[in-house]
Design a binder for these strands. Structure first.
Lengths: 117, 117
DNA sequence: CTTGTATTTAACGTACTTGTTAAATAAAGC
DNA sequence: GCTTTATTTAACAAGTACGTTAAATACAAG
């Protein structure tokens, strides 16, 4: 068993794969089966199955059970948590950003490299 | 040379490591040198240096050069892009969420497992 | 030019990730 | 029961990630 990453790390590594993000994008338009999800990709079904396992372990999808199909659906909880984490950094690209730029400018005194200590 | 991941994947994998996120949190409070950044961690300096390399490659930090110090500073661009990506999913945990819940409830007809097709 | 401080690179080990193919499991339907 | 369809597990290979220690590099200062 792995050392059990913290939830945010688990979410971020799950999202770090473009195939998995594409799967989520598809699920944002509604639930789908494994075969449906695999259709756009040039990888084998087992590979897709494993991506789904990763997404489910991260809580980003949940799965149902209908005959031989295991439909997947998007679960937004971890995305919401990620959004919450990101929020603490939002000030760096919003409003006060100009203020910070100005502040940095005063302490770097026109240094082209922008070093300040 | 690696196949060059797309920028969002690069950002997300850089952020997927808790040590790297802690480094960013520290840098959110102001620029810092490698030794300063390494201080709170129980890992070697080379390990920290490599984390910084990853963060820089992802554009999440920039580095200056002051005598033998290479001060790091936070760069918010990739975080802003991530926020932009996340925005497309925001509807899943805001406002219309209740509506979606209600919708799912109608098609699952009280199934405890929540399957809908 | 030798020493001390800051940081990186090299070399290496271990573990995880991702993909593959072949086989197993699950359920439907004849 | 046997076949078909959907999906997962097993076994394996190649590449990547992350940590270590030892050596190299960069610069400041005697």
């Amino acid at each position: 068993m792995q050392p059990a990453l913290d939830p945010l790390s688990t979410t971020l590594s799950a999202l770090a794969d473009p195939t998995r993000r594409a799967i989520l994008a598809r699920l944002a338009r509604g639930a789908a089966t494994v075969n449906e999800l695999a259709e756009p990709f040039d990888i084998s079904l087992p590979a897709v199955s494993r991506h789904l396992k990763v997404l489910q372990a991260a809580g980003l999808i949940s799965r149902g059970r209908e005959a031989q199909w295991r439909p997947c659906r998007l679960e937004a909880g971890p995305l919401k948590d990620l959004d919450g984490w990101l929020a603490s950094y939002r000030r760096f690209w919003e409003g006060s950003f100009d203020k910070m730029e100005a502040y940095l400018a005063t302490i770097t005194k026109g240094d082209p490299d922008g070093r300040e200590n």
